[in-house]
C-alpha cells in the first residue's frame, strides 16, 4: 500500500477529483494548504504598498492505494492538474505500513 500525496493548484480541485474517481479511487482526503516552491509567492497591494505573499494557496490530496494502481493514479493526477505553467505542484509517494478501517476493524488492502 502506498500513500500518494499531491499538491496542486486550487482551481484544479474538481478536475483532479473527477479524474481520481474515473481511475477507480474510492476515497480521498483534501486539505487547503499554503506553500511555495519554484513558483515563489505573489504580490498584493494595500494602499499603494506592495506586499510579497510567500505562501500561496494550494490544495493537498492524500490517497491510500494498492501498489498495483500507483502508476495509473499518478498519471491521472498529472494529466488533470497540469497547466504547463510554473506552480502546478508535486506528487510524492510514501509506503504505508498499516491501514485500519475503524468501523469494521479490517486491515490492509481490504480497508482501502
Amino acid at each position: 500500500m502506498k500513500l500518494i500525496t499531491a499538491i496542486i493548484k486550487p482551481f484544479k480541485l474538481d478536475e483532479v477529483k473527477e479524474a481520481l474517481k474515473a481511475a477507480g479511487v474510492t476515497g480521498m482526503t483534501v486539505s487547503e494548504v499554503r506553500g511555495f516552491g519554484r513558483q515563489g509567492g505573489h504580490s498584493e497591494t494595500y494602499r499603494g504598498a506592495e506586499y510579497k505573499i510567500d505562501f500561496v494557496p494550494k490544495v493537498r490530496f492524500e490517497i491510500v492505494v494498492d501498489d498495483n494502481v500507483v502508476e495509473s493514479v499518478i498519471a491521472s493526477i498529472k494529466a488533470a492538474a497540469s497547466t504547463g505553467k510554473i506552480g502546478d505542484g508535486k506528487i510524492w509517494v510514501t509506503s504505508v505500513d498499516r491501514l485500519v478501517r475503524i468501523r469494521t476493524g479490517e486491515e490492509g488492502s481490504s480497508a482501502i
Binding site: 493548484k9 482551481f11 505573489h42 504580490s43 498584493e44 497591494t45 494595500y46 505573499i53 497547466t83 505553467k85
Partner: peptide, 16 residues
C-alpha cells in the same frame, strides 16, 4: 481563463 481560475480578487485587484 487563468485569471478566472486564480480568482478575480487577485487578478483584477491584487488583493485577497
Amino acid at each position: 481563463p487563468q485569471d478566472e481560475a486564480d480568482g478575480l480578487d487577485y487578478s483584477q485587484h491584487a488583493e485577497s
